[in-house]
Design a protein around this nucleic acid. Structure first.
Lengths: 267, 267
DNA sequence: ATCCTGCATTTCATCTGGTGGAAGGCATGC
DNA sequence: GCATGCCTTCCACCAGATGAAATGCAGGAT
């Protein structure tokens, strides 16, 4: 078992303390962290030389400097979803034994942002490099689940984009009546399924993957942050079995992810 | 001499590397940092348990998580100025032996955001707790330097605010003609001086501080980030002496601070 | 099949480098 | 004047960080 590094932990602890009290004397940090002062001096000197904190000339108090800000990346909306989903999908996979993907919109397709395929004992084709894989909007379980629950204007935008596409896989975008039927069915059912004629494979290919899947959206109010699914070899089990056994878990997972995202916001 | 903590330095180094390459395998981080992998594993585990990085389920790669974002504070405009000014004012004080303040607008007054009074060997009244001290807009050297160079609309806003004030120290706000004269003089001169009748002391008091001062703005294009000054006991030296000896240094300091602020932006 | 390569992870003997109690300075308050 | 509170330095101790070497593991080539 790998051990953690205590001195690094303490350094981060000091950083957190300085963030809770943005301008602090050594004494303040000491009160907050209970770390002995000589040690704090060394930690703060280290942080200072790394450009993470600086000292106020006026009174020598410490403050987090813009050095930390420069360490922070633009927070991509979907990155946060992926991060929140990862541990939940991991647990879900442990529980139901079948893997899941997290998919998010990406223009004329959805793309995989996270997956537990590597975790599943039964999924031999666990190609890594799965992240970023494009998936069809209108025929896949995930695309249908997303479109069925996302806000009206977002749905319209996607469909009008697909209507302009000349790929034959997007034919459904031009059959508004049939598409509305499909989406209503999805809403009534409460989860997304593949089109019976859809064989899977990345968007732009027709490589049959032999899988079946069911998908639920990550709904937060009227917003949809993405979709998660459960997939399994089509030959292994009929859809009804999986729905009966796993749908409640899948739904719980979706709710957990959304709750996590909500929590972050409030903090 | 206090030493720094190597393991903490390395932890921060990893954080910087992960920021340069937001999603990295252990190998990637190793290439970037040249730190041995077993050590990296321990560092990354520590960062992970502190919520600073997380691992992608799909392939186990590391990514900076929103935990870091939560460690970052809203960047107050003037805090960045203070931070950039601190080392420059420190050096300036070492060179000219007289201390400086950094002042920024704060409603109906300016306030001290940073000061090198503690550094000066000659300034016995170095009260700490100087940060936050309010200073008069229209009579002080700093206020005049700021108003002389800040954008029109900002000047108008300040003056109209002061016109509503019933403090007698703000009488000049109601004498537009005299005020314009004062500001023109300041511009021609190139630096701000106290009103001859102004005795100093915080805004709202008339406590004579026995000081003299000269002030230059931190000009960045049409913007003014704040003002820095040099102060000395009025009895010690006539203004002309200080202008001759120190004004070039003061101006250079102002330019250095502005350059630093510009640099941060571009990075 | 088998070998090979590249990467992640674990182990463990070595000894560096982090630690914190004690003491020294240096202001300010009484 | 002395007392107090805080920052800083010193230094002897040894926990804890370190990294070379070994192990494990998956994918690609032959």
């Amino acid at each position: 078992m790998t051990k953690t590094i205590r001195s690094l932990e303490r350094g981060l602890q000091v950083l957190k303390a300085l963030n809770a009290a943005p301008i602090s004397s050594l004494q303040d940090v000491h009160r907050l962290t209970r770390i002995p002062k000589p040690t704090l001096l060394r930690i703060l000197l280290t942080l200072e030389q790394s450009g993470i904190v600086s000292r106020r000339l006026a009174d020598g108090r410490y403050r987090v400097s813009s050095g930390l800000t420069r360490l922070t990346r633009k927070p991509d909306r979907y990155d946060r979803v992926a991060e929140a989903a990862a541990p939940v999908l991991d647990r879900l996979c442990q529980k139901v034994s079948w893997p899941s993907d997290l998919m998010v919109p990406a223009g004329d397709h959805l793309e995989v942002r996270e997956t537990s395929r590597t975790q599943s004992p039964f999924m031999t084709y666990y190609s890594k490099d799965r992240v970023g894989m494009p998936v069809n909007w209108l025929l896949s379980a995930v695309g249908r689940a997303y479109l069925a629950y996302c806000p009206e204007h977002e749905r319209k935008k996607v469909i009008s984009l697909l209507r302009k596409s000349d790929r034959q896989e997007n034919w459904l975008a031009r059959d508004q009546k049939r598409l509305d039927e499909v989406l209503s069915e999805t809403r009534e059912r409460g989860y997304g399924l593949r089109d019976p004629a859809f064989v899977g494979g990345p968007y732009g290919t027709q490589a049959p993957d032999g899988l079946a899947g069911m998908a639920v959206p990550l709904r937060d109010g009227s917003r949809v942050h993405g979709v998660i699914n459960i997939i399994w070899p089509r030959a292994a089990r009929p859809i009804e079995d999986l729905v009966r056994d796993c749908l409640p878990d899948l739904r719980a997972a979706a709710e957990e992810i959304v709750a996590e995202l909500r929590g972050h916001k409030s903090v």
